[in-house]
């Protein structure tokens, strides 16, 4: 699997580590909305098909990125910086 790192370009997935579901929004710092934290920390969908995931380029630039990946086929889509939001 080749992962397009927005900084380093297309690299082998072994340079990255999978780092969790990126489809959920982290409640803002200091939010006391327990239900929102509960949802963010514990409740994950387990979709078969397209998914948005965090990957970290641990053996490269160490940047975190969001990657579109099909969980059934491992077909990789776009990637972007978490700070930039989805390109659409």
């Amino acid at each position: 699997m080749l992962i397009p790192c927005p900084h380093c370009g297309e690299r082998d997935y072994r340079e990255f580590r999978y780092a969790g579901d990126a489809s959920k929004a982290r409640p803002p710092l200091g939010s006391t909305d327990i239900a929102a934290w509960h949802d963010y920390v514990f409740l994950f969908d387990n979709p078969k098909g397209g998914h948005r995931e965090y990957w970290q380029h641990v053996l490269g630039c160490r940047r975190w990125l969001v990657l579109e990946r099909d969980t059934a086929t491992n077909v990789v889509g776009r990637s972007w910086w978490p700070s930039e939001g989805s390109p659409g």
Binding site: A19, L29, Q56, R63, W64, P82, S83
Partner: peptide, 13 residues
Amino acid sequence: MSRLEFLLQTAWT
């Protein structure tokens, strides 16, 4: 280390 990077790059940019 990874956690610090996560928070700085995704949550507290």
